[in-house]
Simulated assay, not measured.
Amino acid sequence: MFWEIIPSSPITKLITKILDDMVRLSTVNGIIYLLDNPQSHETLKVILSRLGHLILDPVLSIRSAVVDLLLLIMGIHSFQFHMVVHLDVLLSTLANDQPLVAQKITKLLLPSYFPTNVTSEEACNRCVTLIKRSPLAGARFCEFCLSEGASPQSLNLLFKILINLVLSPANISSDQIDGILMAAANICNNLATKPKYKTALKKVLTSKKLM
């Protein structure tokens, strides 16, 4: 509330002390609160990386709060969330964490790996890139991307691409094939609840392809 009347040096020392020594969940929630004040952004941008390790905290509520923080700074122009938590760590967490955290990370990564402001073909290509880079994370991403706003039409196209890709596995490792099949299965589970897309899925999975 009184940010502008406190010199930057003591503010930085105080926040650094809080980040290093205070209760973990309260610290994350406090930083989220501070970000409401645009005057805090320049200082926080430099020191927020000190919170990155909390994405691996054994307590679910803390990991969830860290992703909430990343979602918040994603919408702030001067911040880059991967400077707080490295992308490889995010992908590992996406692949292995509880659904609450995995779904939030999917929301975080959706603009990069299945954006709505590009063509369906480009969105699918980006998602395939994700699956090839981290098969388990990519499969988990496909589990939640519909609920986080991905287009059903685009996901239907992605399903076709994934099925064709696994049937022509040139330069694809066995781990990648597993990830592609799990991703396709997750898309199928989501789209099959809609009669229109259930019919479309059946057309893709011909007897020849299933054999």
Rank of each mutant, 00 (worst) to 15 (best):
Q80L: 10
L91N: 08
M1L: 10
A170P: 14
D21C: 15
P195G: 04
L87M: 12
D57H: 09
P111G: 07
L14D: 13
P169Y: 05
A137Y: 10
A183S: 13
C124G: 06
K107A: 07
P10F: 02
T93N: 12
I6L: 01
E122S: 09
D97C: 10
F144I: 00
Y113R: 14
L87A: 10
V204G: 05
S168R: 14
D175P: 07
L25I: 04
K208N: 04
M22A: 08
K13M: 10
E122P: 03
C127Y: 02
Y33M: 06
S40M: 04
I11R: 13
N189K: 05
H82F: 13
K132V: 11
T199H: 09
L35K: 11
K203I: 10
T43W: 09
T193S: 11
S134E: 03
S173L: 03
S134D: 01
N190Y: 11
I73G: 04
K107Q: 09
Y113F: 15
D175M: 01
H53A: 08
S61D: 08
D175Y: 06
A170D: 14
P38G: 03
F114C: 10
G138D: 01
S174V: 07
L109P: 09
I73D: 03
S92Y: 14
A150D: 11
K107I: 06
H41I: 02
M83V: 14
K45L: 06
Q98F: 15
E122F: 07
L71K: 02
H41L: 00
T106V: 07
D88R: 02
A65V: 05
L157D: 01
I55M: 12
G138M: 02
S173W: 03
D97N: 13
C188N: 14
V85K: 02
L157V: 09
F2G: 13
